[in-house]
Write a protein that binds this DNA or RNA. Structure first.
Length: 255
DNA sequence: ATGTCAAGAAAATCTTGA
């Protein structure tokens, strides 16, 4: 089974790219982030025509997450995380697909740091931590994937020294990610490629993609029982070079 | 500081977030 995650940066603006990539790679399950579309503007007809079932949690202007599946039912389990009744941002969607719990997440960016947005990011991390712990102890197969907005180590940034004060790389954020992983999760891409320079995001500025000035911020965390079945974990880097591409690349695993 | 995108409100540009 091939499971992918892709921050599309506007599902309607990227629809041709998304459909082309779906046709080219035919993943079984796809988690999308940054839909930037309200619930009623999700392009379900085009996605259904491409052969996918879908559930989604939209929001006007920003955020928004979706789970797509081909040939499998999508049994929705939750929208959003516990721990903040005031939070209206669409950043978490969870479903059971083919016996696996899929958590699709879009962690807050957090810039500028310090500040309220950074505080929100750290609080969101705590809420994810609590939920992830519950998932791990539930005895299910679990995949937690999406845009974590964190580079876990210096290997995951083209110029680490430039990013030290950025909300994607500050020590508090890296620590939060490592504490989460330490619950018992496995970073799938790093597990199969321990020393390789791998990026999943390239800024639109200054020809970052052409210079390979990237970040690795889209991740797959696997529950322990899935690790032995992990066959591949790859980035579809070339998609970033397509016309009207998102600033993120699709990332996928095969289990 | 800058660079590049998309969405939305407003009224064919500007603001916001990333």
């Amino acid at each position: 089974m091939k499971i992918a995650t892709y921050n599309v940066n506007g599902v309607n603006a990227r629809l041709p790219v998304l459909l082309r990539w779906l046709e080219e790679t035919a993943p079984d399950v796809v988690c999308l982030q940054e839909l930037k579309a309200p619930q009623e503007k999700f392009p379900i007809d085009a996605i259904a025509a491409a052969g996918y079932n879908a559930i989604w949690h939209g929001q006007k202007s920003w955020n928004g997450v979706a789970i797509l599946a081909k040939g499998h039912e999508i049994e929705e389990r939750r929208k959003g995380l516990d721990g903040d009744n005031e939070d209206v941002q669409s950043r978490y969607l969870e479903a059971k697909v083919n016996g696996i719990i899929i958590g699709c997440l879009y962690l807050p960016n957090g810039n500028p740091a310090p500040g309220p947005k950074f505080d929100y990011k750290l609080r969101w991390f705590e809420r994810l931590y609590a939920h992830a712990e519950m998932l791990l102890t539930s005895g299910n197969h679990v995949v937690l994937c999406g845009d974590y907005n964190v580079m876990p180590t210096e290997l995951d940034v083209y110029k680490p020294e430039k990013w030290i004060n950025d909300a994607l790389f500050r020590p508090e954020v890296r620590a939060a990610f490592h504490e989460l992983v330490a619950q018992g999760w496995t970073d799938a891409v790093r597990h199969l490629h321990p020393d390789e320079v791998i990026y999943t995001f390239y800024d639109y500025f200054r020809q970052a993609y052409e210079r390979n000035a990237g970040l690795r911020i889209d991740h797959f965390l696997l529950s322990p029982d899935l690790v032995q079945n992990l066959k591949k974990a790859e980035v579809d880097r070339h998609v970033r070079g397509w016309e009207k591409s998102s600033d993120h690349c699709p990332v996928w695993i095969e289990i």
